[in-house]
Structure formats: C-alpha cells, structure tokens
Amino acid sequence: MFLQTLITGLSIGGIYALMAVGYSLVFSVLNFSNFAHGAVIMLGAYVGLALATKLNFGFGLVLAGSVAGAGIIAVLNEKLAYSSLRRRKAPSLYLMISAMGCAVFLENLVYATIGSRFYAFPEFFGRQVVTMFGSSLSLLDVGAFLFALTAILGLHLFISRTRTGIAIRAGVCDMTMCSLMGVDLNRLISIVFLLAGAFAGVAGVFLGIKYLVYPTMGWVTNKAYIAAVIGGLGSLPGALAGGLILGVVETFVSTYVSSVLRDVFSFSLLIAFLVWRPNGLLGIDSEDKV
C-alpha cells in the first residue's frame, strides 16, 4: 500500500513537473506568472487528440505533433499578447493579467468551437500492469514518470551546455546586459516560449491519456504553480523536485488523510512556502532591490 501510494504519487508528480518546468522557464526569464500555460497544455492535448483520432497516428507521432503544436501556440501567444508589454517594460502584473486574458480567451474559444464534451485518447498502452515488490503499477504511470525525468534532464543539458542555453541563463540574470552582449532578445524569448510550449504539449498528452481531454483541463496547472513555488520559481531542478514532492505529498494526503482536504493542503503549502521560503527549496535569492 505504501509503495503503491508512493509510485502513484511519483507518476502524478512527474506530470506536475512537466507542467512546472514550462511555467518556471517563462517565469525565470520574464519574471511573471504565465497563467496561459494551462491553456497551452489544453490546446496541446487537443492537437494530440486530433492527430490520434482523425489521422490514426501512433503514440510517437502524436507526441511529436502535440509538442510542435503547443510550441507554436506558445510562441504566437507571446508575440501577440506579451511582446509589446515586455518592450514597454510594463510591470509584471500587467503581463499576468494579459496572461489571464489569454487563458480565458483560449479556453472559451475551445468551448465555442469544439464544445465542452470530454474526449478520451485511444488506448495506446492498453491497461498493462507491471508487478513490482508486490504492488501493481500501470505501465502508463511508469512510462510517464520516466519520460518526464528524461525530458527534464534533456532540457537541463540543453540549458547548461549549448550556446542558446547559455544565452537563456544570461537573460535570466540580466536582460539588458544580455542584449548588449549581442543576444537577440526577441529570438531568445521565442525560444524560451517554444521550449515551454513543447513541455506543455508533452504534459497535455500525458494528462489527456491519464484522464480525459476537455476545455478546463488546463486548470490543473494550479498545481504546477505550486510545484514551481515549492521548488523555487525559475529553477529547473527545483521544478522537478517540487513537482515530485507535491505529487507524492498529495497522494499521501488523499490516501491516508482525506481526498477532500488534498487541495486545501496543497494551497496551504503554497502559502507557507511563499511566506517562509519564497525562493523555494532550490531557488536563487531574489529580493526586491532599491
């Protein structure tokens, strides 16, 4: 029972981490809370769904298509809704409200055009179950967890090893300085949004397979914000750690305490972290400066 709970928690945590990484990446560069991230995840799931049901693509192609689709949507979102605010150096709260507007817009656009029906992905993995240490695990859970780990590790390598990655890290430190050194900021930020969108696409497909696809599925990203805060906003390893911790803790609370209190507990955790440790477990110090 304990092990079962732990592994269920880890697999949910893996999906939280996928969502939190994209959110955290945008936060680290532009310093605002991108509430439209959930909508991008939802659209990614719809793209994957369309590919899977209309074109009968296999899992790999569906995932690739959804990654590309969500990435493009995220970039467009930035160009249309954030870029002019960013150039004007508007306070981050204006960006947040613009993001909220995008979320409302995209979600209701899907309502109005596709409808509020719940859709299920075709069963890619069947209901295969692996037995390990006397507890049974669904193949999907294990796969989602491993895939999340690999993808985040890949992103980490990209950010720490490549030229573009170095530029992104420089942008996190100081945008103005970074552009003085000859980095094309617009391109850089597009790349950041492309990456965030790609991760949103992966998260969308896994969420869609594990649960269902519907217009408000993006609201789960509330959990991604919490995960990102726990791990430290703007830190990638932090987003991974935060996602896994949140997934495990939530599963334990709903198994051993009460499933009703789960969300109250998560939100309290969010507030506690913001008050006592606003930089999270692995975040860098970011005080308001004079």
Binding site: N31, F32, S33, S92, L93, M96, N222, Y225, I226, V229, D263, V264, F267, S268, L270, I271, L274, V275, W276, P278, S286, D288
Partner: peptide, 18 residues
C-alpha cells in the same frame, strides 16, 4: 513577510481557491 507583489498575488490566489 513583505512578499514581492507578484508572489503576493499568487499567495492570495491560493488562499482564495483553498
């Protein structure tokens, strides 16, 4: 705790949802 204003907005969002 004198949270940064955007952190404060997220904290109160969490409170409202809870």
């Amino acid at each position: 705790a004198k949270l940064r204003s955007d952190y404060f907005a997220i904290a109160i969002l969490g409170f409202g949802e809870a």
